[in-house]
Structure formats: structure tokens, C-alpha cells
Amino acid sequence: MADKVQRMSSEHGVMIFSKSTCCLCYAVTILFRDLGVDPYVHELDHDSEGKDMEKALVRMGCNVSVPAVFIGGKLVGSTNEVMSLHLKGSLIQLLKPYLPD
């Protein structure tokens, strides 16, 4: 399942594995949109393999399964990691290749 997660995240510049009921997932998605990036959001609770994908995300290093943010195919982390990068000014640097010209 980790292979599928990695493949999906590599196919999209900015990807968020999410749950439709997760307010932190929503907040991270809105943050990216406010920064000018339209992330691909995959709702695990709407996927028959969602539970297995969640377990794979934890094994890949997400301390909590959602939101799991990938940028350029690399795992950035969850809300804490994303917000920390944003507050340091580093998030926008990671997102530059995916911002509209």
C-alpha cells in the first residue's frame, strides 16, 4: 500500500491525504489555496482502501495519519510540520514550482 501512496503523491505536485470530517485537513487545504496552490486532496474516508492507506502513511513517518502532505512526491508531514514551515517562511519556497506564473 505504501507503493500506491508514493505513486499517487508523485503524480501530483502538492497532495494532501485527508478525511472529509477532519478540520485540520480542511485548514491545511485552505492554507495551500490561500498561498495560490490548488492541492490534490484524496479523502481516505471515501476510498475503499482508505484504512490501509492510513496505516501506510503512519509507517511512512506521519505521526498522525491525516492530513498527510506531500510536496514534489516527498512527505512533508502533518499539520504541525506544515505550519512550522509556513511560520519559518520555508513553505512558500517548497511550493514555488507549483505556483501559477
Rank of each mutant, 00 (worst) to 15 (best):
A68L: 04
T79E: 05
K96H: 10
V69Q: 13
G13D: 06
G50M: 07
F70K: 12
V76A: 04
Q6F: 00
D45R: 07
V14P: 14
N63G: 09
V82W: 06
P97F: 05
V5H: 06
K74H: 11
D101Q: 13
V14Q: 13
T29D: 14
L85C: 05
R59V: 01
L35K: 15
I92Y: 02
S84N: 10
L75P: 09
L85W: 03
D45L: 06
Y40T: 10
K4M: 05
V41I: 08
L85K: 06
L44E: 12
P67I: 03
D47F: 04
I30N: 14
D45Y: 11
H86F: 08
D3Y: 02
L75M: 10
P100T: 06
Q6C: 01
G50S: 12
V14D: 13
V14A: 13
L99P: 09
D38T: 10
K55L: 07
F70Y: 15
P100V: 06
S10V: 05
H86D: 08
S48Q: 15
T79F: 03
N80C: 01
C23K: 10
M83R: 15
E43L: 04
R7W: 00
E43H: 12
T79N: 08
L94W: 06
T29K: 14
D47M: 07
M15I: 09
V37S: 13
I92F: 01
L24N: 08
C62Y: 01
Y40I: 00
I30E: 15
E54Y: 01
Y40D: 02
T29Q: 13
L87A: 12
I16G: 13
M53V: 11
L31N: 09
L95C: 10
G61Q: 04
V69E: 12
R59L: 03
S90I: 00
C22E: 09
L57I: 03
D101M: 04
N63Y: 09
S78C: 05
C22Y: 07
S18L: 03
A56I: 01
